[in-house]
């Protein structure tokens, strides 16, 4: 089993009520796509909100096929609104 620590910001942090969440996966190889599914499984409220977001791994935005390991810094980034 793989456990990933995922950082949350903005709307996600607020809805989940925490700055980070632990997600558990049975597969050793976890893709960003699987990470998203795992997140929605434990945070179904966010599915109904239909929020768009990207995933950052080690502070870089990555696509759905990228692999994620427990040593990576993982973050979910909802729509940004800086400035």
């Amino acid at each position: 089993m793989v456990v990933l620590k995922v950082r949350l910001f903005g709307l996600f942090r607020e809805v989940v009520g925490s700055k980070e969440i632990l997600l558990h996966f049975n597969d050793v190889d976890v893709t960003v796509s699987a990470l998203k599914r795992g997140f929605f499984d434990v945070c179904p409220d966010l599915v109904s909100l239909g929020v768009l977001f990207v995933v950052a791994v080690n502070r870089k935005v990555v696509g759905d096929t990228a692999k994620v390991t427990p040593t990576d810094e993982v973050a979910l980034l909802p729509l940004v609104s800086g400035g």
Binding site: P78, V80, S81, G82
Partner: peptide, 8 residues
């Protein structure tokens, strides 16, 4: 900044 910096 508005497009690429993770600020909310």
């Amino acid at each position: 900044i508005k497009k690429s910096v993770p600020v909310w």
